[in-house]
């Protein structure tokens, strides 16, 4: 979102596709979701490349509303396509480790959730390394800072956009299979996740990996604590309130560079 100046409103639907991919791989080929990650990542990467090439590329440089309509339209199409192809049923898979927990006295930690947490941190760290220490990563950062200068420095920005977009969808290729053992999938599930993801990204500061990781942890903690101490029905209200406060007092986000997002 920070690099390309494009807000992909179909991001949640890509998560939905990734969940369905791991669901069907399990259903038809009995591939464990933790193994199907290896298949779903390239699949989602490829899907990202194709989407960028055929749908996003033509909108680059056009007014913001054009990409909003394209991605929002894509989201509606994908949701309804999923409804048509796979019906509205709540699909789940059953694996023995889905409800496995590690206990320390009174504290029990769900193993699949712990795995998600570890993988998320690792992936975030890898992305951080990628952005800072590889040529492509530097090119992405350069493009995000100033598109024209980057072009003058000989960076092929079309390639940068393609890789950036596909990396985003490839990350969902990791998320889907890891979420499948503990969640369910249905055509509109993406929206449940994407709303909070937007909050995390904006709160953390657009384009900041560190910010997004910290903001999402903050939201998770606030959600659980406010649910426990106040009322489960209130938990979304509390973090949205915090979100509004951040927007008022530090509109660039907690880790956003001042002036970058104007």
């Amino acid at each position: 979102m920070g690099v390309m100046d494009i807000t992909n409103f179909a991001h949640g639907e890509y998560l939905m596709l990734s969940l369905y991919a791991s669901f069907w791989l399990f259903e038809f080929f009995h591939i464990d979701p933790y193994l199907s990650v290896l298949l779903v990542i390239p699949l989602m990467f490829l899907l990202g490349l194709l989407t960028e090439k055929f749908l996003i590329r033509p909108t680059i440089g056009k007014p913001m509303f054009i990409h909003i309509f394209v991605t929002l339209g894509l989201s509606v199409i994908l949701q309804n396509l999923a409804l048509l192809l796979w019906s509205g049923n709540f699909r789940t898979i059953q694996v023995p480790f889905a409800t496995h927990t590690i206990n320390f006295g009174d504290i029990s930690i769900s193993t699949p959730r712990l795995i998600i947490f570890m993988v998320t941190l690792t992936v975030a760290y890898l992305i951080h390394l990628f952005l800072n220490y590889t040529w492509m990563g530097k090119a992405i950062r350069a493009t995000s800072q100033n598109r024209n200068s980057a072009q003058l420095m000989g960076i092929n920005i079309n390639r940068v956009f393609m890789v950036t977009f596909a990396l985003g969808t490839a990350c969902l290729g990791i998320a889907g299979p890891l979420l499948m053992p503990i969640y369910y999938v249905y055509p509109t599930i993406g929206f449940q996740f994407v709303l909070v993801a937007f909050v995390a990204v904006v709160m953390g500061g657009l384009g900041s990996v560190k910010g997004a990781v910290l903001a999402s942890m903050l939201i998770g903690i606030i959600e659980t604590l406010s649910g426990y101490f106040l009322d489960p029905a209130m938990k979304q209200a509390i973090y949205f309130l915090l979100f509004i406060l951040v927007l008022i007092f530090k509109p660039s986000g907690i880790f956003g560079e001042e002036g970058k997002v104007v």
Binding site: T224, G227, Y228, P232, A233, K235
Partner: peptide, 16 residues
Amino acid sequence: ASYSAKSNELNSLVID
């Protein structure tokens, strides 16, 4: 306790 049917986590409720 009440909760939203669209919740994607109910940890706090279950802990209580």
